[in-house]
Design a protein around this nucleic acid. Structure first.
Lengths: 141, 141
DNA sequence: AGAAATTTGTCCGTATGTATC
DNA sequence: AGATACATACGGACAAATTTC
């Protein structure tokens, strides 16, 4: 079998695969998809072909991509759902990061102060002004 | 000047140029644009970049492309807009081609039978089944 | 605060497949 | 059947945004 086959719309099959995985929940929601480079290895395709597949899913509204961050599964976009899916919409964007637990949180969680904590954060903006900041802490992502 | 410059969204400027030419009437609607290869030479860009620009214009509904035939200007007053507004083409794709006029159409148009007629066609599909076919004939695009 | 690493964005060149003329 | 034109795919290089240290 030849290593590469042209003109067979491979990117569509890749998009179908990813869409199925997303709908079945096999792809962890609230987390980024594997990087384009990783998907290229996984599907044994070039990065360009992966990008074509992702482009299709973006048009369908299944995923959203941000330069420098990654591609995320897009769910229903109430603020709570934003926190759950880690997607982005017009009102705000979910950030996910870790911080060393300050004392008050460490007490609450019952862990040593300084233990890394997961934070999910949504900053809701009206045009030109931040209306609210939501943060969700947890010991594990 | 360097021969190639990365990350400057050249394809957008190319799309802007083409859109302007189209809106100004330099590229009359219904007529094919230069081929992708020709545009690549004209704009001193690779064919891939040209295709990115054309993809943008397709999404805007400014042009329509058919494999093996070319890319055509879609005018604002063309019947294609009727197709677009009348038949939401979620899953359907607009095809544009020519056929020799059969007798009945030739009579209607008052042209000799066999005269090339423009056809604009949208096939609407529900999942797995064709629900309707819309065709718009005209003497000129 | 700033540099390095990571990840997506853009562009190029080339080769092959598929539809149309 | 041959020529033309768009579609798909690969790989490499550099730019820009974000994250991480």
């Amino acid at each position: 079998m030849p290593t590469t086959r042209y003109g067979h719309r491979r990117y569509r099959k890749i998009a179908d695969d990813l869409r199925t995985q997303i709908r079945q929940g096999s792809l962890p929601s609230g987390r980024p998809l594997p990087t384009e480079a990783a998907l290229a290895v996984e599907f044994k395709a070039s990065r360009g072909t992966i990008r074509q597949a992702l482009s299709l899913l973006r048009e369908e509204g299944v995923v959203a991509t941000q330069q420098g961050r990654g591609t995320y599964v897009v769910g229903p976009s109430s603020p709570l759902d934003l926190l759950r899916t880690g997607a982005s919409n017009e009102s705000g964007r979910v950030r996910e990061y870790q911080v060393p637990a300050p004392e008050d949180l460490a007490k609450i969680f019952g862990v040593p102060s300084g233990t890394p904590l997961w934070v999910r954060e949504v900053i809701e903006r009206s045009p030109e002004c931040t209306s609210s900041v939501v943060r969700v802490y947890s010991v594990r992502g």
